[in-house]
């Protein structure tokens, strides 16, 4: 669940308020957005991808609120790490171009052919 809007980093663009698919943030008068409906967070991490200043932190635990330490998250490079992974932000290579899915079938442990499933149509990759 969403656990942090860093007041130090936030530039009050309110983009998180605008893009959150489940409406967990509220904007405030002259201040940083607040996490108003934390229980509605679906832990999809996408707000982090959109935040231009890496001010948000979504904890991996979807059913329980946890205490987070902003300094520690910043020091470990966790703030902004998802945006970096997908390659959004200036000077970064987009994840799309790094996608290794074409090679995934080659390393798969053997599995039987099933009548229906995502592997029922295979694109030749070799």
């Amino acid at each position: 669940m969403i656990e942090l809007v860093s007041a130090e980093r936030c530039i009050q663009c309110n983009l998180c308020v605008k893009v959150c698919p489940t409406n967990v943030f509220d904007k405030t008068e002259g201040g940083v957005p607040v996490i108003k409906r934390q229980e509605d967070c679906q832990t999809c991490f996408i707000c982090e991808a959109y935040c231009p200043v890496d001010a948000l932190y979504v904890s991996p635990f979807t059913d329980e609120a946890v205490q987070v330490d902003e300094e520690e998250l910043a020091a470990k490079g966790i703030l902004g790490s998802w945006r970096e992974t997908i390659g959004w932000g200036p000077g970064r290579q987009k994840l799309a171009a790094l996608d290794q899915t074409p090679f995934i079938d080659r390393i798969l442990p053997p599995r039987p052919v099933r009548a229906a499933g995502i592997s029922d149509v295979k694109v030749q990759t070799s």
Partner: peptide
């Protein structure tokens, strides 16, 4: 959309 390359240099 920047598709990745497969092992044969084709877009995947």
């Amino acid at each position: 959309y920047r598709f990745p390359l497969d092992g044969n240099g084709n877009l995947f």
